[in-house]
Design a binder for these strands. Structure first.
Lengths: 168, 168
DNA sequence: ATAAACTTTCAATATTATTTGAAAGTTTAA
DNA sequence: TTAAACTTTCAAATAATATTGAAAGTTTAT
């Protein structure tokens, strides 16, 4: 495979993966493009390379900044803004985990705690099944949460080193 | 909060969480409904409770069976099919992880391996950046893959026990 | 073999998510 | 202060995804 073809495949695959995991396809593609670009790119560059509109490019870039995955760069004597991606995969993984935890896991945990409070007749099978499911999922969610929190604090080597020690 | 309200909230939240993670909202809702139902339900029950059409219910139930999250139950002397959910959260988490690994991670790893093969001029910054990104992501993907594979084999207690040992 | 009971299919439709592009807004240099 | 260079916004258009429901298919009991 040639480099040029490889780049396209990479961008396409990153986009598909993103959309399968609830991240806007274009956002993932812009991120992929910046990941494999040695230099920071302008909005124009991105619009052109990915054939997307100015509005779309602008919003997507803002979102990516919001996720902490890319940054703006200003160049002396130039009005244009340049964008570049954080390239360390461990940092990327952490940023994504952090954002999704905040946006999705935290609210669910909050609701589960409320649902766990519901009182009812222990002899009612409807109540018992509900209660058991909620409690079990609550337990799982809390474990996931705890694991994520620790991961967010962890250093890459420390983390993978420890994981590998268990999963020998 | 009352039980009835709690049930609705639970179904709604599960549906939302599903849709944020690339799983069809209705599919997640049907799953939620079966999770908190003490008895197996018929297609009719599900259609009625969630106000969805017969076709939708049928397709969704088939998908859930495909994911290994629910099963059919046949009752002696009855033509109707009943459905019930696997209720152990660890098993649910494993099934979902397994399916998504197979459908999404495995193809990406295959592509990354191909991209890692691409030869080029080591002095070309375009090539170097591409290569580095692909290699780094490849490494991350392989680690995730390895972790998932071990998790899929693991017993619940063993797994969480070990995780907690590191994340003390 | 028939018909009732039930399940599956899929083209049409509805819903939701994404993208566009032109207008409005902002910043900077002269 | 002006106007060019650039960025942001958002209503409308488009595209992607999910749902419906009626018809076709299947199974079982008689």
């Amino acid at each position: 495979m040639e480099l040029a073809e490889g780049k396209l495949k990479f961008i396409e695959a990153w986009g598909k993966l993103g959309s399968e995991w609830g991240i806007n396809r274009t956002m993932a593609q812009v991120h992929a493009l910046l990941l494999i670009s040695p230099d920071a790119l302008t909005t124009e560059d991105i619009m052109e390379t990915l054939s997307i509109s100015r509005g779309n490019a602008n919003m997507t870039l803002r979102d990516l900044i919001g996720w902490g995955l890319i940054e703006k760069q200003h160049r002396a004597g130039e009005r244009k803004e340049y964008f570049f991606a954080e390239k360390d995969t461990w940092t990327i993984a952490r940023q994504v985990a952090q954002e999704r935890k905040k946006r999705e896991l935290d609210p669910v945990i909050k609701l589960l705690n409320e649902l766990a409070e519901i009182k009812g007749d222990e002899k009612d099978p409807e109540y018992k099944t509900f209660k058991t499911s909620v409690n079990d999922i609550n337990k799982l969610a809390k474990n996931v949460n705890k694991t994520l929190e620790t991961m967010l604090k962890a250093e890459e080597n420390w983390f993978w080193g420890s994981i590998f020690k268990i999963f020998k």
